[in-house]
Design a protein around this nucleic acid. Structure first.
Length: 303
DNA sequence: TGAATTTGACCTAA
DNA sequence: TTAGGTCAAATTCA
């Protein structure tokens, strides 16, 4: 079996992924624009889509874009793993194997081995089907943390998970941490959203924000990469700067221009965050790692 | 009655 | 030792 990749195929796949990423980002932009229009309307005005639906669309577009970006990374890691396994490949402990006989429970791998990012939002809807598998109280937080796995874990082997917790500072908001990438191809709306589940707590006095439209939608997305991903690993899969140039130049009718704003970078260069402040929305775009030849000194985008 | 959620016990990593 | 994450039996829901 030949593991080597044809350079032409790589270019083709990369171009295709770039188009897919662009498509998702444009969809997110359109939803965000609709959201802006909706917010500027007098309260109670009818809209084609609700605030929550638009927020979910924006989130889904970015999630999909992240998935596409990181699928390249995952492919590369898997490829490297394959190559390395022939030399010094050591078996990785998998949850469920070598379990102790005590209650059928055993060791799980708690290492942060998948890409993760968190968002702060007034809704937890993201058009994925989630199954709740646990809830725990968290130290120094009055709100419990709920644990969800993808509803397609067993039928499609999707390992995506998320953790949802009410924000300590603003109990109307939910801090959702996504762990791992959806490998399932279904984005069917869950019959019961995570928000519903969280709001179903009997002792909860926080109203259901989905029903009351209390606060303007706010998304705060912060993406982190596993520590195994060195900066060089990450930059191997960065977006081509030309794509961002194209994105910057993309200006459909009635759509605001994308403008680079400020960039937040931490010292490890594995947890970069790009954000934008626009209108009354604090809207953070999942971090994307650029090469040193990236044309912008600043990396936030006004959508 | 099957599917989904809740919840306490169990386990790992720090 | 302990906080956080997961399991799985019990419970609830449709």
């Amino acid at each position: 079996m030949n593991n080597s990749l044809c350079p032409e195929s790589e270019i083709s796949i990369s171009a295709k992924k770039n188009r897919m990423i662009m498509k998702e980002l444009v969809k997110g932009q359109e939803s965000a624009t609709q959201l802006k229009v909706l917010l500027e309307k007098p309260f109670g005005s009818e809209g084609s889509l609700s605030c929550q639906e638009l927020t979910a669309n924006v989130l889904r577009s970015f999630t999909q874009a992240i998935s596409i970006i990181n699928s390249s990374s995952a492919d590369e890691v898997a490829h490297r793993s394959l190559l390395n396994s022939g030399q010094n490949g050591s078996p990785v402990a998998v949850s469920g194997e070598n379990r102790s006989q005590k209650g059928g429970r055993g060791r799980y791998n708690r290492r942060k081995s998948a890409v993760s990012w968190s968002i702060l939002s007034c809704t937890t809807d993201d058009n994925h089907v989630w199954r709740k598998y646990g809830q725990k109280g968290v130290l120094n937080s009055e709100f419990p943390r709920s644990y969800f796995r993808c509803g397609h874990k067993y039928d499609q082997g999707c390992l995506a998970k998320k953790q949802v917790q009410r924000d300590q500072e603003n109990s109307n908001m939910y801090r959702t941490t996504y762990i791992g990438i959806h490998t399932c191809n279904a984005t069917t709306k869950a019959t019961h959203s995570a928000t519903d589940l969280l709001n179903s707590d009997h002792d909860s006095e926080v109203p259901n924000v989905q029903d009351h439209h209390i606060s303007p939608p706010s998304l705060n997305i912060k993406q982190t990469f596993p520590k195994e991903n060195t900066p060089s690993d990450v930059t191997d899969h960065m977006l081509n700067p030309s794509m961002w140039s194209a994105l910057k130049d993309f200006e459909p009718s009635n759509k605001p221009t994308i403008v680079p704003l400020m960039m937040e970078t931490d010292t490890n260069n594995v947890d970069n965050v790009y954000s934008s402040q626009r209108l009354d929305m604090d809207f953070r775009v999942p971090s994307v790692h650029f090469g040193t030849d990236f044309p912008f000194d600043e990396g936030h985008f006004l959508i």
